[in-house]
Simulated scan of single mutants.
Amino acid sequence: MTTRFDLTLDCADATVLAAFWKTALGYVDEPPPAPFATRAEWVASFGPPENNEEDEEDDGAWLCDPDGVGPRLSILKVREPKTAKNRLHIDVRVPGHGSPEQRWDRIVAEAERLARAGGTIEARFDGHHVVMTDPEGNEFCVAADSRSAG
Rank of each mutant, 00 (worst) to 15 (best):
D10L: 09
A19W: 04
F20I: 03
T23N: 08
G26T: 05
V28Y: 00
D29M: 06
P33A: 01
P35D: 09
F36L: 04
T38R: 05
R39H: 15
E41N: 03
E41G: 02
A44L: 09
S45G: 13
F46E: 06
P48D: 07
E50Y: 07
E50T: 13
E50G: 13
D55A: 12
E56L: 13
E57I: 11
G60E: 12
W62A: 12
D65K: 04
P66K: 02
P66G: 02
D67L: 13
V69T: 11
G70H: 07
R72H: 13
I75G: 00
V78T: 15
P81D: 05
K82R: 15
A84E: 15
A84K: 14
K85I: 13
N86V: 06
R87M: 11
R87L: 14
L88G: 07
L88W: 09
H89Q: 08
H89R: 11
P95H: 08
E101R: 10
Q102C: 05
Q102H: 10
D105V: 10
R106G: 02
V108T: 11
R116G: 11
A117W: 07
G119C: 04
E122G: 07
E122P: 05
R124Q: 14
F125M: 13
D126W: 07
H128Y: 14
V131L: 15
P135F: 02
E136A: 04
E139A: 11
D145W: 13
